[in-house]
């Protein structure tokens, strides 16, 4: 119990439950399976981006360019698919390839020329996005290959509302969850994942114990690129149009969601479960406002307050306990212990 209280995830979960109770008491439609499935589907896009952001933050970096990467991967893939036919698997593979390439460029620049990640990725964001708009002329794509539509409609579980309308768990949600499980396993159980925590904790120590820092950095940003690309395709599946300018500008929201879930911008800290809660927290705020009939103009105000209060709370706590933190290491939960070991071993 004591260990649970120490975990950031516990607090986020508590906030989510309180919000859910408030929303449900005003509009019982919130806590229906239909609404939950819908939330898990419509937030898959942000959620998949968040997985990549989580990896980058754990490694001690930051990426601003992923929205541009996602758009480029989405746009190019759809154009190629329209030209040659292709299939859903081909679309995903091609997008991932583009994503990895663009991400790896970020990682290489950051490591080889030791440019701060935030600067590198702002620069590459401008570069990627600028080129995309120039070459696409800002044109929207309204007709997607037919399999984009049929794939998006796949449900692994179908239920019916009282009016006989079908709903259920979408394939998109399944993709998101599969990626989260995969990312979680990678982070906790593989050498690769532990190395990401290690370079985020302390690069120099990591280097000394023989972790190939350059490879790790390139891997992390390439992974971010791959997630961005998958998210791009998912976005195309969700909205069934491709707009070159629809994603760019949402970078900071995604980063905020991941940080709300307990990842630290200083690196070395963060879990997939926390990230999921962070994404859901913002999703529930937005969804709840709609259900409580609060005008949409208030959305940013609420999100801003949620960010300031919850991040402020944990920062305040961290500031207070800075002195005792060294002593606390031994009492940490197994998961955190692992991350500490990852940093030292």
């Amino acid at each position: 119990m004591k260990q649970l209280l120490k975990r950031h995830e516990t607090y986020v979960l508590a906030i989510i439950i309180i919000f859910s109770l408030i929303i449900t008491s005003i509009n019982p439609n919130f806590l229906t399976l239909e609404n939950m499935f819908d939330l898990l589907k419509s937030n898959a896009f942000i959620g998949i981006l968040a997985i990549g952001v989580l990896f980058v933050l754990i490694s001690g970096g930051i990426d601003i360019s992923f929205a541009a990467t996602a758009t480029i991967a989405e746009y190019l893939t759809v154009i190629v698919c329209l030209k040659i036919g292709g299939s859903m698997i081909f679309a995903f593979l091609m997008a991932i390839f583009i994503g990895i390439l663009l991400g790896a460029i970020n990682g290489y620049l950051i490591d080889r020329f030791s440019i701060p990640p935030i600067i590198t990725t702002i620069a590459t964001m401008n570069l990627y996005y600028g080129l995309l708009i120039v070459f696409s002329k800002g044109k929207w794509l309204y007709t997607l290959p037919p399999y984009f539509r049929s794939f998006a409609d796949i449900r692994v579980l179908t239920l019916y509302t009282k009016d006989g309308l079908p709903y259920g768990i979408s394939i998109i949600t399944v993709i998101w969850f599969a990626l989260m499980v995969l990312a979680s396993l990678l982070l906790i159980y593989t050498r690769l994942g532990r190395s990401i925590y290690a370079i985020g904790g302390d690069v120099i120590s990591a280097q000394r114990v023989g972790i190939r820092v350059r490879f790790m950095r390139i891997f992390v940003y390439a992974f971010m690129g791959a997630m961005a690309a998958i998210a791009g395709i998912v976005q195309a599946l969700l909205v069934q149009t491709v707009a070159p300018n629809s994603i760019v500008g949402k970078e900071l929201n995604v980063i905020a969601a991941v940080v709300l879930g307990g990842a630290s911008l200083a690196g070395g800290v963060g879990t997939v479960f926390g990230m999921f809660l962070g994404v859901m927290l913002l999703a529930i705020v937005q969804n709840g406002m709609t259900l409580m009939k609060i005008p949409a103009v208030w959305y940013d105000v609420f999100v801003g307050l949620v960010i300031i209060i919850s991040v402020g709370f944990s920062s305040w706590k961290a500031k207070k306990s800075k002195v005792t933190s060294l002593i606390d290491v031994q009492e940490q939960s197994p998961q955190e212990k692992l991350s500490v070991q990852g940093g030292i071993s």
Binding site: I255, V303, G304, G312, S315
Partner: peptide
């Protein structure tokens, strides 16, 4: 409060964008 600058100002950015709207 001790919030990292990037997060503190991200929060106020969102908040005051919202207030402005």
């Amino acid at each position: 409060v001790g919030i990292t600058p990037i997060l503190a100002t991200l929060g106020t950015m969102t908040l005051f964008n919202g207030v402005a709207i």
